[in-house]
Nucleic acid binder design. Structure first.
Lengths: 240, 240
DNA sequence: TTCTTGGTGTGATTTTTATCACACATAATG
DNA sequence: CATTATGTGTGATAAAAATCACACCAAGAA
């Protein structure tokens, strides 16, 4: 796993923790499922007895509040594994998973995985690593979104996006994916207008710019890091 | 483990996921360490190669921001296990752990635990359960602190405190522990004054009251649940 | 082409939250 | 006892963020 570990700005897959052997075992027990853009892979409160491996596409893990606002907790993409090792037979998802574009996933039954874990000690250990990383991602976002206001939250989100979608160019780091202000707002936990105003300000200060096609270019990463008091977490943690 | 699972308002210990056999194995590899109130068990950025079992006392996991404000992520107490299964040899803590009162912990060396995990398949599985629960706690707090403003954040924190410290009485749920407004503010991610004003309001609406000794009594749990759109998570998750 | 849709950019206003300032408790200490 | 701490309660004000309103733009559909 991990074809491009040495390269700058190459998105980490959270399955990079698995050895090729383990990953092959996982592949053997997964079956394929296609899911169209804007469809839900699972819903908040559904029975949680599967894990999903994203073959290609994009899945957003979201929490809807009562007023209809969405908070996007993670964006998973090619090579990522989604789900939890449920603590008992009757676990439920506490979030929803929505395809942000046409996606193909490999479905892994909880039970099949459990068998694998019992049979292969190293699979268990690798899964513990994976779980540890996923938890670190959550905690680091928690910190970023709570500690330095909405501006710090936006700046940290831009840094995370640069790790997940960035490509180094002469201009700076180009985010290969387009994000609307609304989408950014859902990642940051703020309103569309606030994101727009903060982005305008960042443009004015030459921290970022936008290409004609609407993609964002980060010209001054250091400024963003300063704004959220970045702790330079490894890229497997600092992601959306 | 889990002497009082059926009882109302009896704090869950996060080690309740372990079987007695596993727990005995853990006890066999831990050694004791005493730590005085206000001392740190570990600091942000220290090498993370140990886990800690709280024998008795109280440990707060905190994140300090640059302006000196503290965010309290968890409060661990008797029977709780603290730490992470590090993903490699060179992990570091991303938070600090401070004794909120005189505390005795059992120290578990990462390496000893790893040996245990390799030798006993069920230890691995139980640790995965434990990790899963810890992650769920983090995610549910994330939701609570982000989604319904500072008032929702305070109300959810009061509910969590009721699960961790509550005792049922005729008056309502008494929190057996005293918390200053500042301590609550650190749990909620707001200022001392804002907590004070929100608590005053809740008192006026007869949702809570305070005893002479300063402890809080929750008279109207339903009101608090409404304020944060509580999803009635199990008590092992809904804790501070 | 025109119309619709989804997105951007920005003023004006309101609401929420933080900050400052200080009076007043109460407990701990010499 | 007086004297420090530490904590509470609240007004006044400032700052941050959300909300409302609307002009404008670009892409795609009719």
């Amino acid at each position: 796993m991990g074809a491009c570990k040495e390269q700058n700005y190459c998105a980490y897959q959270n399955t990079d923790v698995f050895t090729d052997e383990t990953f092959q075992l996982l592949k053997d027990i997964m079956y394929s499922q296609k899911i169209e853009k804007d469809q839900y892979l699972f819903l908040d409160d559904d029975t949680a007895n599967k894990l999903y491996y994203v073959k290609h596409g994009q899945i957003k893990i979201t929490k809807m509040n009562e007023e209809g606002k969405e908070l996007v907790l993670y964006i998973f993409q090619d090579g990522d594994l989604i789900g939890e090792l449920a603590n008992s037979g009757e676990a439920r998802y506490s979030f929803s998973a929505k395809a942000a574009r046409d996606t193909e996933v490999g479905v892994i039954q909880q039970k099949d995985l459990e068998t694998l874990i019992w049979q292969h000690g190293n699979v268990a250990v690798e899964f513990m690593r994976w779980m540890g990383i996923m938890h670190k991602i959550t905690r680091s976002k928690f910190r970023d979104l709570m500690l330095y206001g909405k501006n710090g939250a936006l700046c940290s989100t831009l840094i995370r996006l640069s790790n997940s979608y960035g490509r180094m160019t002469a201009d700076g780091i180009v985010l290969s994916n387009k994000f609307t202000n609304t989408e950014l707002a859902e990642l940051v936990g703020t309103s569309r207008e606030t994101v727009n105003r903060m982005l305008s300000q960042l443009k004015k200060e030459n921290v970022i710019k936008t290409n004609k096609d609407g993609t964002i270019v980060i010209a001054d990463l250091a400024f963003l890091k300063e704004a959220c008091h970045c702790e330079d977490c490894p890229k497997e943690i600092c992601r959306v």
